[in-house]
């Protein structure tokens, strides 16, 4: 039996810029494991240990997804092996496409009955990938998951649900999106990184997967107009003077 963790190798748009014509320049943004995905890997490791299952990582993305650095970063997070679909075409994939590829990959690997994902990716954050994967597979999907344990009727899934916490018993396969604060993932040590280099890595060609997605056409891209700000700097060395200056300015603006 296998438990799969979907992880994304992505850049933080904080470090990207958009041109006035809406082209996103990613060159200064270094890709990394999407911020919340190590939490999913760590929750997956605990679930796999409890169920005596193999824990595998799945990723779909552009060519940078298959670099040794990306593979090592993922494998040092407690995964036993990874399967990667990397293709230039996927660097511009939408959530529908990403999910179709991951669902097809899950079917083709086989023997997977639990799929974990992070809460949201750092670059898009649509939170739709787990839900679309579940739609493809016909499996239930639950969000806000903090722990998974084997239980008499299948699996006990603990999750945050609005203001409550719930335990949901799931007896068949499922997709679970892991809460970003489920646990604090351990930082990989030297040993983890060295061991990562020896773990199996499988590359699956995009054309070997049946993963069609609806076509959309980008009619226009633009950099959004930001509200004009005054941009007044106040030196805070003298706190009393700075506070007085601020309060006077806010009163002048009529916002107090």
């Amino acid at each position: 039996m296998r438990i799969a963790v979907c992880y994304k190798w992505a850049s933080n748009p904080q470090d990207a810029t958009a041109t006035p014509s809406g082209q996103v320049q990613w060159d200064r943004a270094k890709p990394a494991l999407s911020e919340f995905d190590p939490v999913a890997s760590a929750v997956g490791r605990l679930a796999a240990n409890a169920a005596d299952a193999e824990l595998i990582g799945l990723s779909a993305g552009g060519t940078e997804t298959a670099t040794p650095m990306a593979l090592k970063a993922a494998l040092s997070r407690g995964l036993d092996a990874v399967w990667v679909v990397s293709d230039v075409e996927l660097a511009h994939a939408r959530p529908e496409r990403t999910a179709a590829v991951l669902a097809a990959l899950i079917r083709s690997i086989g023997d997977i009955d639990l799929v974990l994902t992070g809460d949201a990716s750092i670059d898009e954050g649509s939170r739709m990938v787990p839900n679309l994967i579940a739609g493809h597979l016909g499996w239930p999907v639950l969000a806000g998951v903090t722990a998974v344990e084997p239980d008499a009727g299948g699996r006990a899934v603990r999750r945050a649900h609005g203001e409550a916490t719930q335990t949901v018993r799931v007896s068949g396969p499922a997709v679970l999106s892991v809460a970003s604060d489920a646990l604090v993932p351990p930082v990989p040590g030297m040993k983890d990184i060295l061991r990562a280099g020896k773990k199996p890595t499988h590359h699956v060609a995009l054309q070997d997967l049946e993963a069609d997605a609806p076509g959309v056409e980008v009619a226009e891209r633009r950099r959004p107009a930001r509200p004009a700000r005054k941009g007044v700097r106040i030196d805070g060395a003298d706190a009393t003077a700075a506070a007085a200056e601020l309060v006077a300015a806010l009163r002048g603006d009529g916002v107090l």
């Binding site: 930001r226 700000r229 941009g231 007044v232 106040i234 706190a239 009393t240 700075a242 506070a243 601020l246």
Partner: peptide
């Protein structure tokens, strides 16, 4: 600061009580 109308460069532990007092 790039998105602020008023930016105070300073320690919140000094600035916040000062604003409350002002």
């Amino acid at each position: 600061f790039a998105e602020a109308d008023y930016g105070i460069v300073g320690d919140l532990y000094a600035i916040v009580p000062a604003i409350a007092a002002a």
